[in-house]
Nucleic acid binder design. Sequence first.
DNA 1: GACAACTCTTTACGCGCGTAAAAGTCGTTG
DNA 2: CAACGACTTTTACGCGCGTAAAGAGTTGTC
Lengths: 349, 349
Amino acid sequence: MATKKPKIRTMEELASAIAVSRPTLSRFFQDPESVRPATAEKIRQGLAHVDYVPNFFATRMNRRASGLVGVIVPLLTDPFFASLLQTVELAALEMDFTVITQCSHGSAELEANAVERLLSMNTEGVVVAPLGEYGSADALRQLGRSLPIVFVDSRPAEPYTTIDFVGTDNEQSIGLITDYLCRTGAPPVYLGMPRLNSNGLERESAYRRWMAGHDLRPEVLPDDLAPQSWAFETYAYQTMDALFGQGLYVDATILCANDRLAMGALQAAHRHGLFNSRPGARTRVRIAGHDDHPLSRFMTPALTTVAQDIDTIGMTAMSLLASRIRSGKPGEETVERTFPAALKIRESA
Amino acid sequence: MATKKPKIRTMEELASAIAVSRPTLSRFFQDPESVRPATAEKIRQGLAHVDYVPNFFATRMNRRASGLVGVIVPLLTDPFFASLLQTVELAALEMDFTVITQCSHGSAELEANAVERLLSMNTEGVVVAPLGEYGSADALRQLGRSLPIVFVDSRPAEPYTTIDFVGTDNEQSIGLITDYLCRTGAPPVYLGMPRLNSNGLERESAYRRWMAGHDLRPEVLPDDLAPQSWAFETYAYQTMDALFGQGLYVDATILCANDRLAMGALQAAHRHGLFNSRPGARTRVRIAGHDDHPLSRFMTPALTTVAQDIDTIGMTAMSLLASRIRSGKPGEETVERTFPAALKIRESA
DNA sequence: GACAACTCTTTACGCGCGTAAAAGTCGTTG
DNA sequence: CAACGACTTTTACGCGCGTAAAGAGTTGTC
């Protein structure tokens, strides 16, 4: 209740207020263990009676290690990135790093801005979920030359000489779900996602390879390139609605590049009554996704999918970055860690 | 391709590199219009040949106006807050503010940390979507004493003397959907949300008032207080699953405090076959939500709900904050702007 | 009691840049 | 041509704190 503590703006004032020298205070704030216990207690006592927080800028500007790491994500409205960011941020907190979040909002220009900002903030390293647009690679490469950078979720568009990457093993995850679908019914056709990042291509390739490896004919929807938009659900709905409308794929198994696409496809299937037990249907349409979106299990039918291990990915990315930072130099050899996904068998396939 | 520009670290170096004085450079970076066009061009030319960005900390530390605003949200994994943040950030960008995002991760302690951080960063104002926990108010009140602060989405737990608020008019939105439900079928029972912020209480009160005003008996589920968790879907699923299992509310109209609850309720209804045309059922269960979650229209049945005007709320909050900042003093009189929600009639009710 | 080992204080400098005041430069006016 | 205003350069100081070095104080040990 006694919130009317006197406001103290500088360490100098604080020092004279509690009779401790400023350098001692400086050391205390960076590491309370670095001063004698009695002194630390004295400082804590004093601190309790005043209202003071060290200036963030002044502190971070001069330290050898700023204790700052940047995170760049393309957007926050996709729960995958939101979760990833949350995990990374919490992991950073554990390691006494402060994270500066930058969102590129899907624009290469804003991504470049984010890079500049992080560079200007003495960040010690950056975790980046890149967007796949051309031209975005330049800024990232420049960033990589001055400090360690770990890519998550997807790889940058253009090839790097050396690149640290943490993400899902698309080969495994797509193999897992494709295998399951083949075992339990018709082999899947593949509904691709807009080419927003490397995952789109990787997953499609994985699908093609798996099918080819089992002498099955891969079939990818749609023929033309998908528009570059994050409105996955609507895109999938429109695509599948058109196809279902022509009577195509109404009994097919459809593997979607991600869950949000699958949700759109589900909607289209409902609109065409494909989930009602239709008389004469040999088998009903089956739809599967990828990612295990938090709402997938609340779909009707509950969406069968594969779950990315977001927590592991986020924590691994952060600790990899931390080790890069501690080792000083950008790593000599590339580290690439991909994690397997887990099959979530539900009702839709 | 020629990305091997020489790296320049300080303005001093830059000044001697392109034969312009440092103070002139300083002014150029703050406002290119403030120097003679010829000089500006000369600087731009030089800038194109080198690799330099002004140090973020050093610049923001000394300016009269840091150009920084803070945003505090409880979590990012809820699409409402993600969208809100995005809108606020883009609005801030328009007004030449840089936003520092802080996420409280649902913890009052982390919220307090966020407040301290923003205070230590010379932010000129803060937009906060508060969590309703007790104890969180103290830190926010302290923040409010030193700089303008605009609350969005929900109000802080304890009463403030003066408080700027921007959000949805729950009275209107709940009235809208309740009215619609009453007109088109049985009057709704209300499935409340965990008391995480003021919206939970406000919406329930609005529901009660509206029902009472029409001589209808309000009925709120569940009796006991909901747990303080953001796992809305699961909570609603379990609650409704238990009730449906007892044969209760199977033909009822259920108004949920938000869409994510409704999704859980939807799932429970499906599990009990309430959406299959059951023989003997007078009317089938109806479920409605609140917020217009991006996936609501992809539910089955598509969720009837009311849409909050997130964009308007975010932009209004930001411009209100901007005006508070420009006017210098924390506003004398409270500004409270609530916006109406729009009915989204779909299939679930 | 003296000695060394810590820990603290004092003093001083630096970080990269904002900002102010005075002096200099330029092109424009009369 | 001189006077003038607009812009720039020069010079200087300050922001709040990190950090280093040297001296003063405290503590523990024998």
